[in-house]
Amino acid sequence: MMPLDEMYREIILDHYRSPRGRKPLPEANVTAEGHNPSCGDDIKLEIELKDNILQDVHVDCKGCAISVASGSMLAETVKGKTFAEVSELSKTIRKMLKGELEETPDNLGDLGALAGVRQFPVRIKCALLAWVTLIEGLDKYSAGHPDGKIVVTSEHDHEHE
């Protein structure tokens, strides 16, 4: 497979064409907004967090195929997981995108398709936008700022590396 096809796998394009998690979430109690100033990608997450478990997530992402697909996969994956589990998952995805994992873990499901992005370093931020926004939103919620607007910048991104 040529690297372009590695990045734009059919799974990715499918999520891009019909993103999951677009259903409005009236019960949501956490809102997080992320922005990638270098691309202009915008994401808004609404999370229904109850008993420390993410009951459901609404994702509204305006951006490139990679950021939209990543957000769509997030919506599919994090439902029913605890904050700690989601945090762990986000770390694994980051490692995978940075090429720090020998192999793509089996338990990632569709998310494993994001592995191809690692060959395009400038696009890694796109794949991470949804995840960084989610984790920061949950962090802020835990710290007592349930509606804190979160701006994810490229500089911000480096802090996590």
């Binding site: 372009l4 734009y8 691309c39 195929a65 990679i66 796109c126």
Partner: peptide
């Protein structure tokens, strides 16, 4: 249908 960054990468 296609974001400018995807256009550029392609």
């Amino acid at each position: 249908d296609i974001h400018p960054h995807d256009i550029s990468t392609f």
